[in-house]
Computed example of a mutant assay.
Amino acid sequence: MLKYNPRHYLPSSEELPDSDDTPVDNQLQHLIPGLLEAILALVWANRMDWFFGVDMGVYYDPEEPAVVPDGFLSLGVERVFDENLRLSYVFWEENHTPPIMVLEVVSQTRRGEYTKKKKLYAELDVLFYVVYNPQRRRKSPLEVYRLVDGEYVLLPQENPVWLPEIGLGIGRERGNYQGITREWLYWYDEQGQRLLTPEERILQAEQRARDVEQKAERLAEKLRELGIDPNSLN
């Protein structure tokens, strides 16, 4: 765990830059963690003890610049501070709670995902480090590491990979999100069933509504065949 002098002045999130002004290398680095966040917002809609950040600065030491993961999940923190939400994730404003999981999406321009960032996240006591490299062909594009005695250990490359402290699994699967069909990262339950995306839930609800309407139309037709006006039953 990184140390700093608590007697030093600790700036608030309002005083710290909310970005490192480094643009993401490609659209996937925004969409992939954004999809994971959107699924959690539905599954954990009634929970207020979690936070998922996307391309947000994480301040762990007032004397160091923020690290900006593509995505990260923290448990045991307030989901919402106030109506302005979080500007950044600042350790000393979060009771020194590190993210339980960090996600990095590797692009053509590597940014230390396998080296310096991996080392830093271990020093910050991030329990799970997830690296997704969609360009990999010979090795699995999804690697999930668990922190053991200060070092990251690669977990068995199952799909999905179960994360017991989170109560969810993470895995990859081909699907459609925002009209884009490709491989995405998803959350899974303990039985290995993929959790639905917001778009899929809407389509599912619309299909159920159509099914109910069709059943009602068939019933009305049968009543007419029997000489009964269905409108007279209202």
Rank of each mutant, 00 (worst) to 15 (best):
M1K: 13
L2G: 06
Y4E: 15
Y4R: 03
N5V: 13
P6F: 03
P6R: 10
R7G: 12
H8M: 14
S13L: 07
E15H: 06
E15C: 12
S19L: 02
D21P: 11
T22R: 13
T22K: 15
D25H: 10
Q27V: 15
Q29V: 08
Q29L: 08
H30Q: 09
H30M: 12
H30G: 13
L31N: 05
I32K: 06
I32P: 02
I39C: 04
L42Q: 08
V43G: 03
N46S: 10
W50P: 04
F51P: 07
F52S: 10
G53A: 10
V54D: 01
M56H: 12
G57Q: 09
V58D: 00
Y59D: 05
D61M: 05
P62V: 11
E64T: 05
V67H: 04
P69Q: 10
L73R: 01
L73G: 07
S74D: 03
G76P: 07
G76T: 14
R79N: 10
V80A: 04
F81E: 13
L85C: 09
L87F: 07
S88A: 15
S88F: 00
Y89M: 01
Y89S: 05
V90N: 01
V90S: 00
V90L: 05
F91T: 08
E93F: 02
N95E: 12
N95L: 04
T97Q: 15
P98Q: 05
M101W: 05
M101R: 04
L103N: 06
V105W: 06
V105G: 12
T109H: 07
G112I: 03
Y114R: 03
Y114M: 07
K116F: 12
K116H: 15
K118E: 03
K119T: 13
L120F: 05
A122T: 11
L124V: 08
D125F: 00
D125P: 11
V126E: 02
F128N: 04
V131N: 01
Y132K: 11
R138V: 11
S140I: 00
L142K: 00
L142Y: 01
E143T: 15
E143N: 13
E143H: 15
Y145Q: 04
R146L: 02
D149T: 10
G150P: 00
G150Y: 01
G150I: 08
E151S: 13
Y152V: 06
V153N: 10
L154R: 09
L155Q: 09
P156D: 11
Q157E: 14
E158K: 14
W162N: 00
W162D: 08
L163K: 10
L163F: 02
P164N: 10
I166T: 14
G167Q: 10
G171M: 06
E173Q: 13
Q178N: 08
T181E: 02
Y188D: 02
D189M: 00
E190M: 08
G192F: 03
G192P: 10
R194K: 06
R194E: 02
L195N: 07
L196C: 08
P198L: 05
P198V: 01
E200D: 08
E200N: 01
E200T: 00
E206P: 05
V212H: 13
K215P: 06
E217C: 09
R218V: 13
L219N: 08
L219G: 12
K222W: 09
L223H: 13
E225C: 09
L226G: 08
S232Y: 07
